[in-house]
Computed example of a mutant assay.
Amino acid sequence: MKLYLIRHGESMGNLQGKIQGAMDFPLSELGTKQVDLISAYCKEMKLDYIYSSDLTRAYDTAKKIGETTKRSVQTWDKIREVYLGPLQGLTRDEIKEKYPITVKKSIITSGIEGTETKEELTERCRLVLQELKQEHMNESVAIVSHGGFISILLMYILVGDKWSDFHRPFVIGNTSVTLLEWPNDADLPYLHYTNRTAHLDSLEAEQHAKKGVL
């Protein structure tokens, strides 16, 4: 199985500097441009299936990819962003002021009451990986999801249930692509690349030009 993990385009929540969690935000103007570029990039992937988080920013990204690759999109609540309860809708500075524990501890694994627990996240990852292996072991699948969940799923795939004991080193940018492959029904995958964003180069050049960068 080839598994492409794709983050959604920039959302209005991203633009406003808010921690979104499972709150629903639409794509920003820049996010819409990013989605056009990632969808064109995906045209050569020869995808068999596309799954998307049911949150708008991810689903609108996935729909555009589906149009380009001529594949339908199935929503899957198991791959939506981490639920962060009382932290959702706040900026990082507001969270640090209100919950000092987050100064030195990841928001996702802080254990703050009302947020999704490490055990719940572990179970979500287990179910996602199990279902993918059962249904798509010899196919190419794209999952359009969120930065937090993608980074956790990667850690779970690499180190298992103890993922939260380790530092998560992954940078997962908007519309970035990460590729894993399980060859010949192998239990463990190869990680081909993470956070690939070359498709955004033309957009970044355009933005620099508008700012008058020489």
Rank of each mutant, 00 (worst) to 15 (best):
G89N: 05
L84T: 04
D60C: 04
D165S: 04
T122K: 15
T122S: 15
S52H: 05
E113T: 11
V171S: 08
F170L: 03
Y83Q: 13
Q88H: 07
Y99E: 10
T109S: 14
W163I: 07
S53M: 03
P86M: 03
T69G: 03
M137F: 14
K118C: 15
G147V: 07
P189R: 00
A62L: 10
V177G: 06
N138A: 12
Y51I: 02
R168K: 06
C125S: 12
V144M: 05
P189K: 00
K105D: 11
G66C: 04
M137Y: 14
Q134K: 15
T75G: 05
T175G: 05
E120A: 13
I152G: 10
D165A: 01
L154K: 04
F166I: 01
I79W: 12
N138E: 14
L132S: 11
M137G: 11
L153P: 12
F166Y: 15
L154Q: 07
L127V: 15
T175V: 01
Y49G: 00
T91H: 10
A58E: 02
E94W: 07
T194V: 01
L90N: 02
F170C: 05
G111Y: 13
S106F: 13
F166T: 03
L179C: 08
S151F: 07
V82G: 05
H167Y: 13
E131C: 07
R126G: 14
I95Q: 11
L158C: 07
I150K: 04
H167F: 14
I143N: 05
K63G: 02
V171W: 07
R92G: 03
D161H: 06
Y51Q: 04
A62C: 12
W163C: 05
L55F: 12
K63N: 09
I112D: 13
T115L: 05
E94P: 08
L179K: 06
Y49E: 08
A186N: 00
D54A: 04
D185I: 00
Y190S: 00
P100R: 01
T175I: 01
I143A: 06
L158A: 05
W163Q: 02
L84Q: 09
D185F: 06
L153E: 10
V141S: 06
V82C: 13
D187W: 00
D60L: 08
L90F: 10
I101W: 09
K98F: 12
G160P: 03
Q88L: 01
Y59T: 07
V103D: 11
R71V: 08
R57W: 13
V177C: 07
I143V: 09
T109R: 09
I65Q: 12
I152N: 06
S110C: 11
L132N: 11
E119Q: 15
D187M: 00
E135F: 13
L188D: 00
L179S: 02
C125V: 09
V128R: 12
L129N: 11
C125G: 14
T91D: 09
H136F: 15
V73K: 02
T175Q: 05
E120T: 13
I150D: 09
D77M: 03
G85Q: 03
Y190E: 01
L129T: 13
M137E: 13
K104C: 11
E67Q: 14
R80F: 14
H146G: 01
A62P: 10
G148R: 00
E119C: 11
N138L: 07
K70I: 10
K70G: 04
E123G: 12
R168Y: 09
S110W: 14
R71E: 12
L47G: 03
G148Y: 07
